[in-house]
């Protein structure tokens, strides 16, 4: 049985957005209530995995109980999720509860699997609501229409001039992964874009 090294978890993750988030309702909120809900997902374990060995991929897939997705898609459930980033490159995301990197490294040869821990380097924002796609349209040229970008699709793109990974969790629910260093700037731009629809920060 794999022994999980929990000592690495002793460092508590600090939110990159905690000092800029104001909770409440803002913008053009109508009597029907806000049409957008924004929150930070924190803390998450975020690992980038690079490998070109299909056998290894299958084994990791069995270990994680999630299949590796194909181009522009993601797989997983509410807990663990794998996003396609590029050829032979994926992002594994889950709410932090164990040292996932150690779990994988203990099982696989380090010359076949390259894992990079991005948990401290990324901030994650969840955007949901009926106008979520309208906000995304303001920031990127990707076709965000439901027919082109439905549930379990993901895009690594330029959103509000920042490199971002967008994961469509459900029809109008999006997880946006952004570099932590730009998270504050991104948050400001996102809430500006959301103001015309009225939004609530949870």
């Amino acid at each position: 049985m794999t022994e999980v090294n929990t000592s690495k978890n002793s460092l508590r993750r600090q939110s990159g957005l905690a000092h800029v988030i104001n909770y409440g309702q803002f913008g053009n909120v109508t009597l029907n209530g806000p049409s957008l809900f924004i929150c930070e997902r924190h803390p998450l374990t975020i690992l980038q995995l690079d490998t070109n060995k299909s056998k290894t991929l299958t084994d990791i897939s069995n270990l994680l109980n999630v299949e590796f997705p194909h181009t522009n898609t993601c797989n997983g459930d509410d807990k663990r999720r794998i996003l396609w980033l590029g050829p032979n490159r994926w992002l594994i995301v889950e709410p932090e509860h164990e040292c996932l990197q150690t779990l994988i490294n203990n099982e696989f040869n380090s010359s076949e699997v390259f894992l990079t821990d991005l948990s401290h380097g990324k901030s994650t924002v969840r955007l949901r609501g009926r106008n979520a796609r309208d906000v995304l349209m303001k920031g990127s040229g990707v076709d965000w229409h439901l027919n082109s970008f439905g549930a379990d699709y993901c895009a690594h793109t330029k959103l509000f001039d920042l490199a971002a990974t967008v994961d469509c969790r459900d029809i109008d629910v999006f997880d946006i992964y952004i570099a932590r260093g730009f998270a504050e700037d991104f948050w400001g731009t996102l809430v500006d874009a959301a103001a015309e629809f009225g939004y609530q920060v949870d």
């Binding site: 522009n72 990127s140 895009a155 330029k158």
Partner: peptide, 17 residues
Amino acid sequence: MLIINCPLCGPRDHAEF
């Protein structure tokens, strides 16, 4: 805006390239 059709990702704004 120019749209470049990435063979993997699909049509994207040229600013991504």
